[in-house]
Each structure stands twice: as C-alpha cells, then as structure tokens.
Write a protein that binds this DNA or RNA. Structure first.
Length: 223
DNA sequence: GCGACAG
DNA sequence: ATCTTGTCGC
C-alpha cells in the first residue's frame, strides 16, 4: 500500500490501478461533525507550469470570515492528464494543509469529487488522504451526462454516468454556466449541494473555492 | 477506430 | 491551468 505521496505510481496504468483500489474506500454517508470552519483549496501554476502553487483558505461558518490563508509552492512533477489530475495536485495541496493552524470540518476543492470515470476525482482523493469531508466543485464536466438546468439560482439536475448519479449540475447564478458539484468524501450529494448553496455569495463559485482560486492564481488576498 | 477529456 | 484588453451587462 502507498504510504508516502512521493511514492505514488508514475505510470498511467499504475495510477489507474491505484484509483480503482482507493475508490471503494470513499464514504458517501454524511459524517459531518458540527461545522465551524470550511476550507477552500485550489492549485495554480507559475513560470509556464514549472512551479505548482497550492492555495488553502479557511473560512468561519456561518460568517464566512477568512481566518487563514496559505500558499505552498513547489516544482511541478506531473503533467496534466485527464482522469489523473489528483496525482498532479494533491501532494501540493497536502503541503499547503500542513501550514494550517486549525483542522477544518469541511473542505471544498476545485475539481471533481466522485464525478470521475473511476469515482476518484481530486476532491475524493484529497478527502481520503486528509480523512475529512470534502466536496468537489468543478467549472466543467469530466464525464457523465445531464439535462438542461433550470435558470433559477439553486436549481440543479443530476449528473449520471453508467447508471450512477455521480453529481449535480448546479445553477449558482442566473445567466451563468452551472457548476459541477459532487461528493468527495464523507457526505452524500444532497448534503454536498446544500453546503455549496449555503456558501454562495454573489458570484458563480462558493466563497471557499472562489477565494482559494484567487490566491492560487495570484489575483490577491482576502481582506 | 473515432471522439471526449477536471485543472 | 496560463497567455491577455477591452467590453457587455446586472
């Protein structure tokens, strides 16, 4: 079994085998403790991709006040391969988490949760490693099919793949493309959608992910 | 064999 | 993801 992230498989077939082995460990029952803080995670790149930049923020619930924000930078080791994103981003995300003074009760990640060909998107993978509830919020689809989403804020349609409901295509703002929400770890789809809606401000993305996104792409910090 | 393809 | 200015709309 893999004990260190730096021992992660480097070939595509090994990585896929590991995903198939880990996916069954993902828990979709709600096991959220009382939520007092919510973290947001996102990864950006510098120097034409040479440097990986992991950002993590922690917001208080329900005030959504930013309590912590950290950035971890390291040389990029893996290329982007659709379906294997977690191998590229999770190691850096974990290092950023090590900088936190608190352990959040919920984590929102930029990317898919179980809405993945092998049910192990970056949010699910990170949740497994952190042993914390995680939700994946992606700006576009990786796999699965869905119907047209009603225009009203908060409306959503199921995202299905090979007979499974793997996520929700959620309208977070009117006249704006919907986001793809999927459970990462330790919670189910209704709960995941619920938390995303509860963390919405006036923008398309929920606050945790929006702020982490800013930090990761160097567009500034939070007040 | 031919597309599709998170960030 | 990232490279990039102005511009349309609530």
């Amino acid at each position: 079994m893999v004990t260190s992230l730096h021992d992660w498989a480097l070939t595509a077939s090994e990585a896929i085998a590991l995903q198939r082995k880990l996916a069954p460990r993902v828990i979709l029952d709600d096991r959220l403790d009382d939520v007092r803080t919510i973290a947001g995670v996102d990864i950006g790149f510098e120097a034409a991709g040479e440097i990986t930049r992991a950002a993590v923020v922690v917001l208080a619930w329900p005030s959504l006040e930013c309590l912590e924000q950290h950035v971890h930078r390291e040389p990029t080791r893996m290329p982007y391969v659709p379906g294997l994103l977690s191998f590229r981003e999770v190691p850096a995300a974990l290092s950023a988490f090590d900088m936190l003074q608190r352990r959040p009760e919920l984590v929102m990640v930029d990317g898919q949760g179980i809405a993945h060909p092998r049910r192990l998107g970056v949010a699910a993978h990170l949740g497994l490693w952190l042993d914390l509830p995680t939700i994946g919020i992606a700006k576009s689809r990786l796999c699965g099919h869905y119907g047209e989403v009603p225009e009203a804020r908060g409306e959503w349609t199921p995202l299905t793949h090979r007979g499974d409901t793997i996520g929700a295509v959620l309208r977070t703002r009117e006249n704006v493309k919907p986001v793809f929400v999927s459970p990462g770890h330790r919670l189910g789809l209704p709960t995941a959608v619920d938390w995303v809606v509860r963390c919405l401000g006036r923008t398309k993305l929920p606050e945790p992910t929006r702020l982490a996104d800013r930090l990761a792409s160097r567009r500034g910090r939070v007040g």
